[in-house]
Design a protein around this nucleic acid. Structure first.
Length: 286
DNA sequence: CCGACGTCCTGCTAGC
DNA sequence: TGCTAGCAGGACGTCG
């Protein structure tokens, strides 16, 4: 389940292997991916050079001489540079021939991912700006507080909302909430300002360490060279249902929240008392 | 307009 | 041992 750290790791591993490489040809095989749009670009990108590989949220941007490829790994997507002679794995949907010996392959068994082409840089920017909030490392404290204060949704659901903060998925939402000692069902606007700030810092810290560990490998996540990540060894709550919390020893619980499996420590992560009075008491209002 | 929820997709696994 | 229902979840569409 690639989230920001996994996508960042893939980008870092692909960057030196793709930048400056000329794409000889591209092909799409098997059944079409969902949500990838028209595929006429496959014919037009032959001969173009890769200028840059970068990340925005969970999206991978491959900048070409003329246009961009925008890749989302979905749940099970893998983007890897492999020798041409390596057998083509099942569910390989897109292949970019890079030279005599290597090709970039996009593989995605569950087909939640996508590979789309943008001819126009402004259109790509508009597409991303429309759906993505700031990167977690660049959250501006006041804007973050304002975003949380204007919604009653459970904080877990807010963290998963890419328009609020880009790149957080189920694993790092749970891990960050545990680090900040916040109950995942807490309505966002009930969080005290210092807790909002604690969460902002926890997100940054958890994601930074996860990137240093090259992401988490749960099932089939691999980076651009086919290597596993190691952050799964650092999980404090995710998939640790029934195990003792490393901080207080209480049993980690699992609930269903925002349609997602949610893991937390009932002792370290308490729901705050309602701050209703602060809102309704005129003496407290400006 | 906001927020909750269903849908897509396949492979693995818990449970009978 | 073999079968099947259920689970996993990111993005997006739909509905109240």
């Amino acid at each position: 389940m690639p989230e920001l750290p996994e996508v960042e790791t893939v980008v870092r591993s692909l960057r030196p292997r793709l930048t400056g490489q000329r794409i000889q040809s591209a092909r799409i095989s098997g059944q079409r991916m969902r949500r990838s749009g028209p595929t006429r670009w496959v014919k037009s990108i032959g001969g173009q050079m890769v200028r840059e590989v970068r990340r925005r949220g969970k999206w991978i941007i491959i900048e070409l001489d003329d246009g961009h490829l925008l890749v989302h790994l979905g749940m099970t997507g893998q983007l890897r540079v492999v020798p041409v002679k390596e057998p083509v794995a099942p569910h390989t949907h897109v292949t970019l021939r890079l030279g005599r010996k290597h090709e970039l392959r996009f593989r995605d068994e569950r087909r939640f991912g996508s590979v789309a082409h943008f001819a126009n840089a402004a259109a790509l920017q508009a597409f991303l700006d429309d759906k993505l909030g700031p990167e977690p490392f660049e959250l501006e404290p006041t804007a973050w507080r304002n975003a949380l204060q204007r919604t009653r949704r459970a904080i877990k659901a807010v963290l998963l909302d890419q328009a609020v903060v880009a790149g957080v998925g189920n694993i790092y939402a749970d891990e960050s909430l545990h680090r900040a000692r916040i109950h995942p069902a807490t309505p966002a606007q009930n969080l005290a300002p210092r807790m909002m700030n604690a969460l902002r810092l926890a997100l940054s810290e958890v994601l930074t360490v996860a990137i240093e560990c090259r992401g988490s490998s749960i099932r089939n996540y691999l980076d651009g060279n086919g290597a596993c990540g190691g952050y799964q060894e650092e999980f404090r709550v995710y998939q640790r249902y029934g195990e003792p919390c490393g901080r207080c020893g209480a049993m980690i619980e699992r609930i269903r929240l925002a349609g997602r499996s949610t893991h937390f420590c009932p002792c370290c992560q308490r729901m705050p008392a309602s701050r209703h009075r602060l809102v309704t008491n005129p003496a407290r209002q400006r």
